[in-house]
Every structure is written in structure tokens, then in C-alpha cells.
Design a protein around this nucleic acid. Structure first.
Length: 521
DNA sequence: TAGAGTTGCTCC
DNA sequence: TTTCCGC
DNA sequence: GCGGAAAGAGCAACTCTA
């Protein structure tokens, strides 16, 4: 019988992964590790390597991790199964005194770990493994470790929604075992994701794979609702609802459970959105929707409604390999009134009209989907494209935070201010680190060091002179920022040297972008 | 018991 | 969520 | 084209502190 695998073996593999940028080398290192694992070690380590320990909510975050400081062990003795059991125990603690008990238990585990093992456990707990390999590469490594086709592992992982379990199947049952993994009712499937497109014309071309001069091909153009993604399973009178990350939120959404239970079918897997809707069928403000979605007791969530855009299973038949048009036809039959509005078209003008209509009704934009496409997890293929309007603002940089990881040594996350025309002061409305090339990072590092007025922790304060053009999805009410508004998904477009801070956009302009207030219906 | 602090989830 | 980057 | 990394805002639940 082989010895229990040490956590040190995982550390060694992640060290190899960190040391290279070549995918093939990373996969080889991970595969070498996976191939030597016995029994339950495999699912435990697969979960670790993807940065998501199988215990889920453990109740330890960066604050607790930072507070625990114990001398490391000299020699590695901790096994991966011991770490797994410790995580079980940590996750199980609750009630008065549990925070202290967690910290104590963590300290005892770390005390048995070497310095590098401690580091791995800490990174695992704060959810920032950052070893340059996550689920995608671990999937590759699983295929390599057990000599099974990558496509088979990917498909099984999508359908099972659970890579650790699929790795065990790959090891113990091989390719035929993987092929037998199918969509299982009441067990969530990885949702299909979308890529972006600048406008409907581009979206139509990219989604359908049509090149200039080719015959256009039809796409389904659908309203994109601003809510939370849900996947609803029904088997007989049992209904379960999952989020995009496969968390079970059934208890929060009793109204949707009731609706799906009433649909004319015996078995269903629906893909859609949970949204707040007022009496006039107009969408509620996103924050209202999310507040209701977040509450556990189901009372507030009862006000949320479901709208569906796909059907993956109907009464014993898996539909994931059927073309979208077939799935939509089945969806129309079984849940027509709750279908998200959409049209099948290859005409950019018709798609644009639907986008205009969606925006006028208060929705986020449209999705454009290849009408012939099958249902596939992840972004591969890009058969789904989202189109939403982009707003821009010219704001002033108030300060910058030092970056970490691959941005270490660069000033990265910039603090953004809008002008208050009344006082002449600048009002902070958000931060962003997105949209920066390496070249721009280098430039802004130099620029803001020139403008530096002082430091506070990781923040370098800058003389408020540099104007930056920011692209954003929109604006939302904020309790955190002094102006009462915050930017949603802000990213840098370009630095503007043709504008002074006195010409930057005002806080009034930012506030004017808030969605129209509606009664919370 | 109210408020502060921490965590983890939603937008991905 | 977005964008950039190396492979 | 893929997979990974950079890191934000809002919210609710839970635990701890004063």
C-alpha cells in the first residue's frame, strides 16, 4: 500500500506550475501529481488545485489567516487527507466562540505545516491560490494523468458540475465511465457563458461564425435581463434552483419553485434569470433584485420572478445537443409565458430594433446566439454574444494602489473622482484596475509618482490633475461613497491629456446616470 | 442588544 | 463583471 | 482561442464586542 500523500507533494507540484508559463509544463506537473493519488486523495487534491476546497464555505477569510502566526514545522508530515479533515472540522464550527475555535484549529494545523505548506493552506483559505492553474488546466491534467480523452473529461465535468468527482470516474472507470456521465436531474450543470461584442452587427457575425461576404446565418436575439442567473431542475414534484456557480438557492425563491412545479411537464432543466419585476412588468433596479436574491428566508425572494431563455431537458430527453432553435421551440411549449423575449433573425436592423426595445424597457441589452448552436459550458466557441451599451465618463485620478501578483511594482488600481461644481472638490465614485496594458501600467506608475502628495498603506495619493476616460456599464446607488453613487464595471479607456481636472465630468452627470427610481413594487 | 467586523455570495 | 497576456 | 490573472461594489448572515 502506498504511503499517504503528503501536502508537500501538492506544494511541489504547484511550485512547478508557478515556475513556468507554458501550459504543457503546468499540465505535466499536475498530471504527475494526480496520477499518484490514491482513494479519496484524488477528489481532495483536485478540489484544492482548482482553488475551491470541497468544503465550500469554511468561515475563514483573509483577516483570520493574517491574524494566525505560528512557527512552521521543519519537516513535512501533514497529509492531504489530514488537511481535508481539518477543513471539514473548520467548516462545521458555528455559534458563539466559533471564530476563536476556528483560529485555534487553524493555528494547530499550520503549526504542523512547513513554511511552504503554510503558504499553500493560507492561499487556499483566502481563495487566492494564484499558482497559474485553475479548473481548465486541472481538467487537462486529469485527462493526461489517466490517459482519457480531454473532450470526454470536459463534457463530463460540465454535466456533472463537479470536476473532483469526474476525476475519480476518469481514474476508476476510464473513458467509458466518463461517457456514461449524463445530465442528471436535480444536479446542476455548468452554465453556458457568453462573450462580448461591440454591437449587434459584430455579435451576429461572431456568434454565427459568418465572415464578410458569406451568406448570413440566423441567430436568436434575446433581451438580456439584469438579474441573477438561475438553473431550475424539476423531477416530478421536486424542484431545485441553482446559481451560476452551482450553489443551491431553492429556499430563497419559493415563488419560482411554485411556478416551475406548475409547468406542464414531469421533468425539466431550465436556464434563465431571477429578476425583480414590478406590476407593469418593468424591471426593478438591479440592487433591489440582488437584495431580494440575497435573503435566505425566501420572504423577499418570493417577490422575484423567473424568465427563461433555454431548456436543457424535457421529460426524459436531454436537449443539450439539440440546436438552439429546437430547444427554444420546446421551451415555448412548456414555459411560453415565462420565456425571455427574442427573435430569430440574421438581419442586423431587426436585431438592433430588439436592442433598442430592450433598452427602452429598462433592460441591460441583448444576447445574440447562433441559432444552430448546441449547449456548451464555458466560453468556448463564443456562440453566445452579449451586446450592451457602453457609457463613458471623464474622471480625475485621486490616488492609486500598488498592484500585486503580476502587477507587483506597478501602480495599478486607480481611485476615481468626479467634480462637485458647487464646492470645486472632487468626489470619489469608484476604483478600477481594468483596461490597462502593461505599457499603460508602466506609464501611470511613473505619472502618479510624479503627482504623489503622500501615502497611506498601499495607496499613493496624487495631485488631482490627471483626467482619465472611463468606460462603464452604468451607475448604482452607493452607501460607501460620499457622492452616493458608484460606478458599475468601470474600466480605463485612455488617459486624456487634452483635458484638465476642471473640465472633468461632474458628480451631477454621474448621478444623472442612475436608473430611474421606481417604486419597489 | 446595537453596532462593528468578518465572510462569502451576487454581479463574473 | 472587464481586459490583457502568454501559449 | 483558451485559460488565467488583475481586483471592485453591494448585500445579508453570522459572530464578536462594548
Amino acid at each position: 500500500m502506498p504511503p499517504d500523500t503528503l501536502l508537500a507533494a501538492v506544494v511541489a507540484a504547484t511550485d512547478e506550475v508557478v515556475a513556468t508559463r507554458a501550459r504543457s509544463t503546468k499540465v505535466a506537473a499536475l498530471a504527475g501529481l494526480l496520477a499518484q493519488l490514491v482513494g479519496d486523495e484524488l477528489p481532495v487534491v483536485v478540489a484544492m488545485l482548482t482553488g475551491t476546497p470541497r468544503q465550500g464555505r469554511i468561515g475563514i477569510g483573509w483577516r483570520t489567516v493574517a491574524a494566525v502566526d505560528v512557527d512552521p514545522a521543519d519537516t513535512p508530515t501533514l497529509t492531504v487527507l489530514e488537511v481535508d479533515r481539518a477543513l471539514d472540522e473548520l467548516a462545521g464550527l458555528r455559534g458563539a466562540g466559533s471564530q476563536k475555535a476556528r483560529a485555534d484549529l487553524l493555528a494547530s494545523v499550520l503549526g504542523r505545516a512547513t513554511a511552504t505548506e503554510q503558504d499553500l493552506v493560507r492561499r487556499l483559505l483566502v481563495g487566492e491560490l494564484r499558482h497559474g492553474a485553475l479548473e481548465g488546466l486541472v481538467t487537462d491534467a486529469t485527462a493526461k494523468a489517466f490517459g482519457v480523452p480531454l473532450a470526454a473529461v470536459r463534457r463530463a465535468a460540465m454535466l456533472a458540475g463537479d470536476l473532483p468527482r469526474v476525476a475519480v470516474i476518469a481514474r476508476d472507470e476510464g473513458a467509458s465511465g466518463l461517457a456514461a456521465v449524463g445530465l442528471t436531474l436535480l444536479r446542476p450543470v455548468k452554465p453556458m457563458l457568453a462573450q462580448t461584442a461591440a454591437d449587434v452587427t459584430e455579435a451576429l457575425a461572431l456568434a454565427t461564425g459568418v465572415k464578410p461576404g458569406d451568406q448570413p446565418r440566423p441567430a436568436s436575439v434575446e433581451w438580456k435581463l439584469d438579474g441573477a442567473r438561475i438553473q431550475v431542475h424539476r423531477s416530478g414534484d421536486q424542484v431545485r434552483i441553482y446559481t451560476r456557480n452551482l450553489n443551491d438557492v431553492t429556499d430563497r425563491l419559493p415563488g419560482i419553485v411554485e411556478l416551475v412545479a406548475s409547468l406542464p411537464a414531469t421533468a425539466l432543466v431550465l436556464d434563465g434569470e431571477a429578476v425583480g419585476v414590478d406590476e407593469d412588468e418593468l424591471p426593478r433596479v438591479f440592487q433591489d433584485t440582488m437584495r431580494a436574491f440575497g435573503q435566505q428566508d425566501g420572504v423577499a425572494g418570493a417577490g422575484l420572478q423567473s424568465r427563461f431563455f433555454d431548456l436543457l431537458h424535457l421529460d426524459g430527453d436531454d436537449l443539450i445537443d439539440e440546436p438552439l432553435t429546437e430547444r427554444l421551440a420546446a421551451l415555448e411549449r412548456v414555459a411560453g409565458p415565462w420565456r425571455i423575449r427574442g427573435v430569430i433573425t440574421s438581419d442586423p436592423a431587426e436585431a438592433q430594433a430588439l436592442l433598442d426595445e430592450a433598452l427602452a424597457t429598462g433592460h441591460e441589452g441583448v444576447m445574440v446566439k447562433d441559432a444552430a448552436s448546441t449547449y456548451e459550458a464555458s466560453r468556448r466557441g463564443g456562440a453566445w454574444r452579449k451586446v450592451k451599451p457602453v457609457h463613458t465618463l471623464d474622471l480625475v485620478v485621486l490616488g492609486v494602489e500598488w498592484g500585486s501578483g503580476r502587477r507587483r511594482g506597478w501602480l495599478s488600481n486607480i481611485h476615481l473622482g468626479a467634480r462637485d461644481p458647487g464646492t470645486g472638490e472632487l468626489v470619489m465614485v469608484g476604483k478600477t484596475f481594468k483596461g490597462m496594458t502593461d505599457e499603460l501600467l508602466a506609464w501611470q506608475t511613473q505619472r502618479f509618482l510624479e503627482l504623489e502628495t503622500g501615502r497611506d498603506g498601499g495607496v499613493v495619493w496624487a495631485r488631482p490633475e490627471q483626467v482619465v476616460e472611463i468606460a462603464l456599464d452604468g451607475v448604482q446607488a452607493s452607501t460607501r461613497y460620499p457622492g452616493g453613487v458608484a460606478l458599475r464595471f468601470a474600466r480605463v479607456r485612455r488617459y486624456r491629456d487634452d483635458k484638465s481636472a476642471a473640465e472633468a465630468d461632474t458628480i451631477d452627470t454621474v448621478r444623472a446616470m442612475l436608473p430611474a427610481a421606481r417604486p419597489a413594487g
